[in-house]
Amino acid sequence: MKTKNLTLNVWRQRSKSDSGRFEKYVAKDVNEHMSFLEMLDVVNEELLEKGEEPIAFDHDCREGICGMCGLVINGYAHGPQERTTACQLHMRKVFELGWDELWIEPWRATSFPVIKDLAVDRSAFDRIMQAGGYISIRTGSPPDANEMPIGKHVADMAMDAAECIGCGACVAACPNASASLFTSAKVSHLGLLPQGQAEREDRVRKMVGQMDAEGFGSCTNHGECEKACPKGISIDWIARMNREFLKAMVTADNEVEERD
């Protein structure tokens, strides 16, 4: 079993209003089988023993599915391993790359203000969902689930888009801090399914509107989001969303004219 000492430069910021700075720590006897967050746990226990405040970072499932964790490691959102969340990154990968010094930062985006150290406020994502990320169906008496067959291909595509975990890595990786990948994944998941047709235009209009209102940047096709996404959500969804959005805006204009 390989072990190593690593130098960590960790972003410490007391609160939203504090300006923040990197602090240097040594992570001793890091073992290749540890997860990245377990490595931070060990550093934190030491800080606590010394009477210092541990490094704040968000995490919960540690299985790569809840989307709560998120760190930028040496410039990579969620670290250097493709399709892997920070909590699923293991130290053997860091060893393989020969990295002895690490720079650990929070997601950086105006729409994700820092709460403390590495924890940020991603409530903007919830508000985008609230704007239209649903199919309006009441609880109780929906039709039998098999009444409407859905082609396997369509269902699989919808699932590809639905796999987004809402972690925000796409925003952190994007030079414009755009939330297009996140928003387009939900627009596409619901827009592909027959159940989602009735509200399709309304949905894209509202969700994109909210995304803009939250101050996220616009998409200029850098493709960094797709590379950083731990679930491999495809950038094609963004193109699809843009087409839907344009179409929805055109129909919206027509509707207004007709009403006039």
Partner: peptide
């Protein structure tokens, strides 16, 4: 219920 909500 889940299918109506769009659960794939």
């Amino acid at each position: 219920q889940a299918v109506a909500q769009g659960v794939p």
